[in-house]
Amino acid sequence: MTGTKDQDSFVRSLIMEAQLYCGEFSDFDTFYVGGGTPSVLAIDDMKRIIKPLEGLFSFAAQRESTIEVNPGDASLAHLRALRELGFNRISLGVQSWDDGLLALLGRRHTAEEAEMALVRCRRAGFDNISIDLIYAIPGQNRRTWENTLRKTISFDPEHLSCYELTIDRETPLGALVESGSISRVDEAERAEFFLATAEFLAVAGFEQYEASNFARSVSLRCRHNMKYWNHAAYLGLGPAAHSFNGKKRWANHRSLALYITALEEQCRPVADEETLGNDELMLEALFLGMRTIDGIKIDQFNHRFHRDLLGESGDRIGCLQKEGFLILEEGSLKPTTKGLLMADSLALL
């Protein structure tokens, strides 16, 4: 968005979209503002979105309300206002503590700004802070990565998301990789980064509850993101947002213009929609479940998909257990750390 006019129509459209789904979803116990850079939206605009939403949908009293914040946009006043609006969790896109790497990744903030942002978040009263980091960046090695983790946990975050680098063509790094002047970190080394992260954070008292997510305690897991992995329903509003009601999944127009136009014509701004069959839902449940430390609850799975997981794939599961990819515990099939690394293959049992 470039001007206030755009922001106006965006806010109006978003509320119109919300009205279309009013009553279709049950109580919301999590609320998440993210994707892109929501922190550029002025507090007034944010207010103009949140208040009507609270009128249209019913929210649980103890809702988790997260907002993604760019370190560069995190003034104390802004953070305080977010807190007042009811946000109780901040997800801060730190990514790295190295200004050079940040530039390579196409990030607009500096390490110092990120440090300041963290301090301000606490000062604004946020007691549930998540930090995003990126590993397996060309040039990074295990020692520099562990230093990154060390510095990060010195801020005592409640939650960490550590993502393996996804190369984006639009970034300076993407261009360098594309041109061949920098090569990607190879698969064996990426696996090493993953394991090093898991080990380092385990020692520091974090639980790896999902392939890329770490929490200080079970109650500090991101309840919102858990919905994706647990295959629960969610409603996404705004351009490019995705929604799932348990049977159907739909994706909104990516283009803001198309999104706004659709809503002006009282249409759902949906670009793609699919109705999922039993096999599709089952495959999703498998690969999502295998990403999480809780794995797949066998009874629930069998009941939901009319299957007999152990009966049908017992040999394969036995073999995967023996090789240390899976454990069978309390009626659940759970991936080990080694298993989390191979979640996709595990899903194909």
Binding site: Y163, E164, Y228, F287, L341, A343
Partner: peptide
Amino acid sequence: RKDVTAKC
């Protein structure tokens, strides 16, 4: 050794 994607 690793096929899990970063974000899902």
